[in-house]
Nucleic acid binder design. Structure first.
Lengths: 212, 212
DNA sequence: TATATTTAATACCGATTGGTAAATAAATAA
DNA sequence: TTATTTATTTACCAATCGGTATTAAATATA
């Protein structure tokens, strides 16, 4: 461990990489992979279709990203960092009610955005799967639970700040929100329009608990 | 078409079948297939796993039910006729509110019943899929839409009967209900408990539109 | 017993699955 | 120029996919 690794060489700033350069943009390729996994799900996306979509041949994909599972995880990371990143800002809304409102309306717009496949990748990519993909399935479940508990914590904060009644069960409310989102994702994949989802959101928010 | 078919022979009541008798109960086999498709989804269920579950070898399955697609449709029919049949009775509840209440609470119980895989087969069996299964995917979408429009019609009736305000959009309310159900299905598959789903139902019904 | 009919069981099919070995090509460093 | 390093390409792998041809077994009828 005392030897110098060649990645952290001392003074060699912006040294050109040694061998043959990559013939493709890694980020573009990952974006293409993301679109395929988003549309098809983890198992539904075959390596053959991924090869087509990325425009790279298979060994180069494996060299750049690892196997299918690794490629999926990297595409998923891009999904989380990109489209889904707005959730972070949602949590900073002033009140619990505004958090819910912005989350659901934002979701309605995102889930029906024709710039990408309909629905939420984390909800759909591996809801059911064959015996070989249960790890991916569990990981997506964990991501969903994670979002849910973020809401729960945010609602606990809201209670302490007084914009949510103290008798409200934060966990229930968080799960209600997550459930609506997941249902809306199914709806979007099934062809529901943006306006239809927004109408659902309006109904869902009607009974939001208040202190008044 | 004037010839007598040998299935509707005249006086031959309860004639014994000619050849070697079936070594398995067709209905039991279909029930096993249903469980596998329910758990794994259409594509996730491999013929190999189905063969294991049914305890019949492959050619016998094909002889009795047709190919994988046909087997799935027959299992689905059993699903609709069995577990899902309670929806029919739900529609006969006296008011729209009672329809929604019975549907959602019934769903919460059904989706988390440990006697079978969690979640709703019609929601999960082919949400995303590979290129070869898009027909099944569309058929399941149609079943969901069908349920949704049943609710819509029921709510139109409720408006005419006066237990739902006339300004309510039946289509929106129906979609709200369907969305909740679909989200609850995802939740159940992800490990949510019956009580957790019932808490969601309670929240969802809080703001049900009334005439008072 | 002989024959027709139907099912069960074994063994197989071509196609597709995810994944790679080996050879070639393109760049930099010495 | 030569050696080294990395990427691309072609061709391939074993395993699994859904699906079947063939043969053996079980029953009814003649």
């Amino acid at each position: 461990m005392c030897e110098e690794t060649n990645t952290e060489v001392a003074a060699q700033q912006t040294s050109k990489p040694r061998g043959r350069p990559l013939a493709f943009n890694q980020d573009d390729a990952l974006e293409s992979a993301l679109q395929v996994f988003w549309l098809r799900g983890y198992e539904g996306a075959s390596m053959a279709e991924l090869v087509d979509a990325l425009g790279i041949n298979k060994p180069s994909i494996y060299a750049a990203f690892g196997n299918k599972e690794a490629l999926f995880r990297k595409a998923l990371a891009k999904y989380l960092a990109g489209p889904v990143a707005f959730i972070e800002s949602v949590m900073h809304e002033r009140t619990a009610r505004k958090v819910a409102e912005k989350f659901l309306t934002g979701a309605a717009e995102f889930l029906t955005d024709h710039k990408h496949p309909m629905g939420c990748m984390i909800v759909q990519a591996a809801l059911t799967c064959g015996k070989g993909s249960e790890l991916i399935q569990q990981e997506l479940i964990a991501y969903r639970k994670n979002l849910e508990s973020s809401f729960e914590h945010r609602f606990e904060l809201a209670k302490s700040q007084g914009d949510l009644p103290p008798d409200v069960q934060s966990a229930d409310l968080a799960k209600y929100l997550a459930t609506l989102h997941q249902g809306m994702s199914v709806q979007a994949t099934s062809g529901a329009s943006r306006d239809e989802l927004l109408a659902i959101v309006k109904l869902a928010l009607k009974n939001w608990p208040t202190n008044e």
